[in-house]
């Protein structure tokens, strides 16, 4: 004889047992005893109410929920926000720098090409040292020029400024900020240079290779 299943016992407790189950229950003392036992336990469970908090608790509960909503940052947004903030901070710091580097590089290339194509005597301004106007032995606060002596083109203030600003720019930071050039972009830019600009670029690259000993 098959006794009632757990699902049928639950149905029996709730007076929803199917006719076949009811017939079995009428005939089976073991199942009937189990149902009686479960009913007794259920009655004990139902006689254990929860103490109601004070009315004041409910008055303040909604306010507490609102405060928690306002003060807590969503977990998903929080984690996203942190990484996003890092990315944006890096981008905010690096994008102007890269734009400046690009503009200065173009200036260097063009001015170098102009100088070679149209030689002119050096002006006083061009010969003026980077730290001119500052007290002796003191470099400008924002630009460290101590390691620039002898750098090509060491007489170019713009180039010195660009190098100083870019010296702490790491490849990983630029990659994380998503500001690396697209694949092929450099090659495309190189093809758009004039003959003189390309010659100047070659000269700058060769000088840089010599300087670093590569």
């Amino acid at each position: 004889m098959n006794h009632l299943s757990d699902v049928q016992f639950t149905a029996a407790l709730e007076d929803e047992l199917d006719p076949a189950g009811s017939a079995h229950l009428d005939a089976c003392g073991a199942c009937a005893a189990k149902v009686r036992g479960l009913r007794t336990v259920l009655a004990s469970v139902l006689h254990a109410p929860v103490a109601e908090p004070s009315p004041l608790f409910w008055e303040h509960f909604g306010a507490r929920v609102n405060k928690a909503i306002d003060s807590a940052q969503p977990p998903a947004a929080a984690s996203w926000g942190w990484t996003a903030n890092r990315g944006w901070l890096a981008a905010a710091a690096i994008v102007p720098l890269v734009m400046m580097i690009g503009a200065l590089a173009l200036y260097v290339i063009r001015s170098g090409a102009d100088e070679r194509s149209r030689p002119a005597p050096r002006t006083a301004a061009a010969e003026k040292p980077l730290d001119a106007g500052l007290p002796a032995g003191r470099a400008p606060a924002a630009v460290d020029t101590s390691d620039l002596a002898g750098d090509p083109p060491d007489d170019d203030r713009a180039w010195a400024l660009m190098r100083s600003l870019a010296i702490d720019l790491h490849y990983d930071d630029a990659r994380e900020a998503g500001i690396l050039p697209r694949p092929g972009a450099i090659e495309t830019a190189a093809t758009e240079l004039s003959a003189l600009e390309r010659a100047e670029l070659v000269r700058l690259l060769q000088d840089e290779l010599k300087r670093t000993g590569a």
Partner: peptide
């Protein structure tokens, strides 16, 4: 869900 309810009551009977 129904079986869990029955098991819960059965276990409570043993515990109590």
């Amino acid at each position: 869900a129904k079986a869990n309810f029955c098991h819960a009551l059965g276990n409570l009977k043993k515990l109590l």
